[in-house]
Amino acid sequence: MSAAAAPLPRRKDLLDIESLAPEEVVQLLDTARPFKELFTRSVKKVPALRGKSVLMLFYEPSTRTKTSFEIAAKRLSADVTNFAVSTSSVVKGESVLDTVETLQAMKVDYIVVRHSSPGVPNLIARHTRASVVNAGDGHHAHPTQALLDAYTLREVLPDLAGRRVLIVGDILHSRVARSTSRCMHKLGMEIGYFGPGTLVPDTRPDFARGFTSFADALAWKPDVVYLLRLQLERMHASFIPSLREYHTVFGVTPARFRQIRDAGIWVMHPGPVNRGVELVDEVMTYERSLINQQVENGIATRMSVLYSLQPVTEARADDEGAGP
């Protein structure tokens, strides 16, 4: 046995960051590293999940997250099936649970869910033996985004304890802000928030510190500035006067970029970037921008998640009386 802590039991589902113990977060991140190393090999695939099936159940449009999960599952040798929600009986009014019952009969091992309503992945998880991974549910959680963010940051700052991250933007609408800030907090980071007054939730977790200007926030000397995407599709005119004003107040303008660069602050963004809104073009080529690494690390982190979860098998369900 090495000096490592005792191995942790495998959990069935990954629904949010909140329910993970800090050491589980660390283990998921550590397990992602050997997966990333695979990407330099000629064969980028391992047989770890050979014969298993992964179902992609996306009730909301997504290109990046869905593609990332698909590549992750395929590199683990799992079979991937897309459940085309918009063309299925969902439009005929079939409930989520009816759909899940159908899927249960198909004996899938993993279900990756995205839904606009918070809690749908939890509901599905309770009614299936398959392992459920939340790929984003409404404003609630996006745990794999949080893990890939933490993984990316740990590559450049191996010990995150005591480091400071400033999260800027549309916090109210952001499951990323919720999950990522919790995850970074579990790893010992200090969290600052700066966003449109109307958008910073009153329910801001007590571990986070709020700022009322970008200047104050930068004076706090963060190690990382994490820019949230302004979700134009969720925005209504009432929240923000204009995109130009958003950029002036909350965006990384050329002047703020110089400050960030001079202080050597790392920059992150979950993508896709609205150029000229959250940040100016030069940030994309900044040597301390981690935005492209975040995408690559998403695959390795999701491989780690799929590999680490354990669906309830028929045999174990019979033994333990678990399952539906």
Partner: peptide, 8 residues
């Protein structure tokens, strides 16, 4: 039952 520690 536990996640194996994968080394490089």
């Amino acid at each position: 039952g536990t996640i194996p520690t994968i080394r490089s």
